[in-house]
């Protein structure tokens, strides 16, 4: 037994070695470097090693930081709510209303294909839609809903959320669909036989059994939105900020220690959120 255990360990580690190597060199060490550099100082021309809490003091002493973190949570929460609502509905339709498996796969693929294309292009694609002279405004004008073009469609929080939802809903659809497909249909039939209404079935059977998928989708959506900087920058026309933009602005100014300190705080925030969610769901089992 002991020898088998040992050989399991050996082959396991040999097979996992390349994975471990990449993660250590390009994830663990870089994160450690960020933590170290977050205590460094910035001079006019370079960054110098030090043990200085100044970056953190500045970060926590600035009112902007709190606003920006609040804004980040706002984006994350709103995007989460919309992607969950849309993603659940779409997955529900595919899992319980489409009868042939081929059709299910085809429709799921239709939802997935945009995920394999460029996010930046997909953001740019909103310009002719939402711009001052864009399709949305012309439609609203011609329908008489508004009498002058709306300025807040593009380059606003509205546009940011719209783009987040546009890009990230797929991260809800796929895990939720995956768990829904495993629900034993006879459970639903049994519920119906004893007189449960559609709403009761949804609330008491489907939603509880779909929770793992919802949790996995939630992890993806929250971390992607909280770590984003490009969508906010592009869709808000640089008018709104989130933590990612704070970091990328510092990077743009070569203020690496300050960017690192903000990164450390962001990282801890993300890890706390994910850690909380992972306690509720065993990702490995649910795939």
């Amino acid at each position: 037994m002991d020898r088998i255990l040992k050989s399991n360990n050996l082959t396991g580690w040999l097979l996992a070695a390349p994975l471990l190597l990449v993660l250590v060199v390009f994830l663990v060490i870089p994160v450690i470097v960020i933590v170290i550099v977050s205590f460094w100082q910035t001079t006019e021309f370079s960054i110098v090693p030090a043990f200085d809490l100044g970056n953190y003091e500045f970060l926590f002493g600035s009112a902007v930081t709190y606003d920006v973190f609040l804004n980040t949570f706002k984006y994350a929460f709103l995007t989460w709510a919309f992607t969950l609502g849309i993603g659940f509905t779409v997955a529900y339709f595919l899992a319980f209303h489409i009868r042939s498996q081929t059709m299910q796969i085809a429709l799921a693929l239709i939802c997935t294909v945009p995920f394999w294309t460029s996010n930046i292009i997909r953001m740019i694609s909103w310009i002719p839609f939402l711009g001052r002279n864009g399709l949305a405004n012309s439609a609203l004008l011609s329908m008489g809903v508004v009498d002058h073009p709306l300025d807040w469609l593009l380059f606003s929080d509205f546009a940011v959320i719209l783009a987040f939802v546009h890009i990230n809903t797929i991260f809800m659809v796929i895990p939720i669909l995956n768990t829904m497909m495993r629900i034993d249909k006879s459970l639903i039939e049994a519920a119906r036989d004893v007189g449960a209404s559609g709403a009761q079935i949804l609330w008491n059977i489907i939603i509880p059994l779909t929770k793992p998928g919802i949790m996995i989708g939630t992890i993806f959506v929250l971390t992607l939105v909280m770590g984003d900087f490009i969508t906010v920058r592009f869709m808000s026309g640089s008018q709104s900020a989130n933590v990612g933009r704070l970091i990328s602005n510092d990077i743009g100014l070569l203020q690496y220690p300050s960017a690192s300190a903000t990164s450390v705080v962001l990282l801890l925030t993300v890890l706390v959120v994910v850690g909380g969610l992972m306690r509720v769901v065993d990702i490995r089992k649910e795939l």
């Binding site: 994975l19 390009f26 870089p30 470097v33 994910v274």
Partner: peptide, 17 residues
């Protein structure tokens, strides 16, 4: 560790590397 690769914000990876 692999899950960390998924959830750590992309800009951190970029900055760190």
């Amino acid at each position: 560790l692999a899950i960390a690769g998924l959830v750590i914000p992309s800009i951190l990876v970029s900055l760190g590397v």
